[in-house]
Amino acid sequence: MSLWVDKHRPKSLDHVDYHQDISERFSALAATGDLPHLLVYGPSGAGKKTRVMGLLKKLYGPSVEKISTKSHKFVTPSKRELELGVICSAYHLEVTPSDMGNNDRLVIQQLLKETAETQQVDLNAKQRFKVVIINEADSLSRDAQAALRRTMEKYTKNIRLILLTNSTSNIIAPIRSRTLLVRVAAPTEQDIVNVLEKVAAKEHVDLENTKTLEKIASHSDRNLRKALLTLETLYTFAGSKTVSENTPIPTPDWEMVIGRIARELVSSRTPATLLAIRSLFYELLSHCIPPSTILKELTYRLIPVVPANLRVPLISAAATYEHRLKLGAKYIFHLEAFCAKVMVLLEE
């Protein structure tokens, strides 16, 4: 049994529920048979991947859905062996080079080149080129991006790249100018409600009224994936009972912990609290919550509770420490420094 998110994922461009204009554009591109390199960007849960898979299906037909996973071995210049999982069909490959951390350049140089240098084997294939999807392109290192630039130009005959990313800010300009930018905005809350209604009807979820769905949508941060997962969770929790407006939407544990940190910060401003908060931070970090998410969530929670005149310095401090967090090596220093700074602000 698969999750609803996957089960009800639209299988073709004609069936997606919103952003019809993007689907039309993709269909037009697929019809020309000359696909440029694409850079698809938008927030997570907006449906980037769904649309790209729809595009592939338009390009190659249904056989593109027969996917298998392979693991590819890489040898670094220092003779270390690394492995990377690659999802592939006869016509496309999907990689997440950022899994390799600093060695992502190798993926571009070795795997992509290997793919690029071989031609499509299947003579009946609709297109002469293969498509390579690169996930999380914004976390590619500069080196990898520079290597990509060269590969992109050299092998246009055999491969087309589709880069998926949350933001174009970290993509170097030469790549941006070589790709066609496609923006996939997050669905509006109404869009989400519509989709939820559809899925609920298909799954025979017993709904009291659509208010519940609206509530889920407003809690979803405009992330369709999150909304669908929430709906499924509610349904599983409720069992045979009706899912009603009053069913509480479960908050993830980590958000609750951050809420607690925020409360403690505001209520008592002593070194002892700082110490207590430290252990909470460590707990969050050991559960793999990204430090910048922690800091961001904490800031958002602090904004409403601090006095109005402190909000500007608070945000400025948050931005500063988040920046340092990215540059520095040890997260806890910056998280704690931020807390201490907030305490000082509150004391003044």
């Binding site: 800010s169 910048s292 961001k296 909000r311």
Partner: peptide, 19 residues
Amino acid sequence: KRLADGADESLAMLNLIVG
């Protein structure tokens, strides 16, 4: 500068606009 260093976008934007 912060964006170039890969800082979180929404915080940086919030800071800019509030500023």
